[in-house]
């Protein structure tokens, strides 16, 4: 039955897809051109790249993970709250044979699909910049999508408790954007002050970035890969565990 929830999203998406695709395409294009090539040329001249690779190769996979984080966070804030509160789509859905469980399964599946789309487009841009050139680098697409999910489900649980959208911009400013800029995508976490390093490693993004980077650069250590995957899955599953009682309480009262 959760398929119905996905179908609903597909129908809505069909009206807006051009804008989404534009954003998913141009944002990585602009960032890779500016930061990867422009700023990268200075980095390559100053320190010969990062860890022996040109800066754009270092940046691109990290930026991919940061991008799915951002997109997943957005998807699980405004659209979900709209369906709970403003458009009351969930109330309408629950009046049919759908259950809260179906709603959650459907939304999670939809976010996963969206993240796969975002990551695929990103991969294409990356390939155009000559960063992703191996067949194995395609694995970065599901990895980045999982990174997105690790943010999606906890945020969905948070959204289920919200009465208006005030908190969302605060979360973006104080959680998502700091992670985006400082969380390992642009420069090594090891150059952060010690305390912040620990914070960074406690978030899913650091693991998502490392996983994506390892897959694209082809230097992934299996033991580390397992650790990164475990952390990402743990966040995603924990989010689902929390979202169920919270959304049930919200919708069936």
């Amino acid at each position: 039955m959760a398929v119905r929830v996905v179908e609903h999203n597909v129908v809505v998406f069909r009206r807006l897809w051009r804008g989404y695709i534009m954003v998913s395409f141009f944002t990585p294009l602009f960032f890779l051109a500016s930061m990867g090539l422009g700023l990268g040329s200075l980095v390559n001249r100053g320190s010969g790249g990062v860890g022996g690779v040109p800066y754009i190769d270092y940046l691109a996979p990290g930026l991919l993970a940061a991008t799915t984080m951002q997109a997943a966070a957005f998807e699980c804030m405004y659209p979900i709250l709209a369906k709970i509160l403003w458009d009351r789509i969930y109330d309408a859905m629950l009046a049919t044979r759908l259950s809260v469980r179906d709603v959650i399964a459907g939304e999670v599946a939809w976010v996963a699909l969206r993240m796969l789309m975002v990551a695929t487009i990103f991969w294409v841009v990356m390939a155009a910049f000559g960063v992703a050139h191996t067949f194995e680098s395609l694995l970065v697409i599901p990895a980045a999508a999982l990174n997105g999910l690790a943010f999606a489900t906890p945020i969905m649980a948070f959204t289920a408790t919200q009465r208006n959208d005030n908190a969302f911009s605060t979360i973006f400013r104080f959680v998502i954007t700091p992670l985006y800029l400082l969380g390992g995508a642009f420069f090594p976490i090891s150059s952060l002050p010690g305390a912040l390093q620990a914070v960074a490693w406690a978030t899913p993004l650091a693991h998502g970035v490392e996983l994506c980077r390892g897959l694209v650069l082809g230097d992934l250590v299996p033991a580390q890969a397992v650790l990164h995957l475990t952390v990402l899955l743990a966040y995603a599953i924990a989010g689902v565990v929390f979202v169920r009682p919270l959304l049930t309480k919200r919708l069936l009262k």
């Binding site: 700023l39 980095v43 100053g46 911009s169 605060t170 400013r173 954007t177 800029l181 400082l182 420069f187």
Partner: peptide
């Protein structure tokens, strides 16, 4: 809060890009 927090973003860019990447760029 919405307006005030807008101040945070450029500061984060300064820390992340200015100092984070700055250490790689040097001068």
């Amino acid at each position: 809060m919405v307006i005030f927090s807008g101040f945070v973003e450029p500061v984060l860019y300064l820390l992340g890009i200015g100092f984070g990447i700055g250490s790689l760029v040097r001068t």
